[in-house]
Amino acid sequence: MNTAKLIRRLAPALLCSLFVAAPITLPAAAQSYPAKPIKLVLPYAPGGATDVIGRTLAQYLGETIGQPVVAENRTGSGGIPGTDYVVRSAPDGYTLVMMDPALIINPTLLPSVPFDVFKDLQVVSRVNSSPLVLVVTPGMPAKTYAEFLTYAKANPGKLNFSSAGIGTTPHLAGEMFKQQTGVDAVHVPYRGIGQSYTDMMAGKISFAFSSAAGALPFTKDERVRPLAVTSLKRAAIYPNTPTMDEAGLKGFDVDLWYVLLAPAAVPAPIVAKINEAMVKALALPEVKTAFAKIGAEPVSSTPAEGAAFIKSEYEKWKKVLTDGNIKEQ
């Protein structure tokens, strides 16, 4: 009888202690994080810009977080298989993915994506910002953006622009340019923007919104002509090239960004820890130098800023895709 009474009297205290214990044990799990190497999934084939950014990040994030970060390529169309792999992995903060704008373009472009970007994933931090470069064939008379626009408008339907494929950032930048200026040009997709340079040098492709990494070797020795960069402020690697915004197309802003994501269920304290290490790693001069080689600048953010950023990017591209009726079936 006494025992029963005792239990009844202790029950609230026991219950209380459970609730009190919970917030204590959770940070304890987070405190031991990271206790083992972290896997960073890169959803594209080795060798591209994703690799340069991803592997640099893996190395320096490993240093700032205190455990090795191992980059792993998991390739597949639109980066979906690689991202899906992370969505399905244990939400313990040991499996992360670095994705580019395809992350938020796919949901509008494709009939179905196996996961919901905004529900199944959370942004840990932004990684970088890299502008695209408007490049034109050397045979084109236009030397400035304004001249190019006049030329393009005077030759409706005659110009071709290349891209790295349907729904890629270079393609959508071109579509957005067409929508905002009323220029009529034909989209010619390639498997990678690099492949189109031969045709651009030969004059078969008139212009392209190319990744800075892809454009750099060709603009260096003037085999193609850079007219403008698509960021709102000038790019460090193209200090003498105006922005589209400066040159006359107000508010034109296209960024070939990457973000670091974790499964949505990873506890906030762990995400905060990775974010802290990310901010430190992205501030390192070595990272700045490595990114600069392919025309990217490190950009860190809080998880909330990152989430807001990809949401706004989602809205921006959704409009371009819908207005241009661009779809994959």
Partner: peptide, 11 residues
């Protein structure tokens, strides 16, 4: 890709 990692643009 390997060259680019080392900051050399092939060309």
């Amino acid at each position: 890709g390997a060259l680019m990692i080392h900051g050399i643009s092939p060309g």
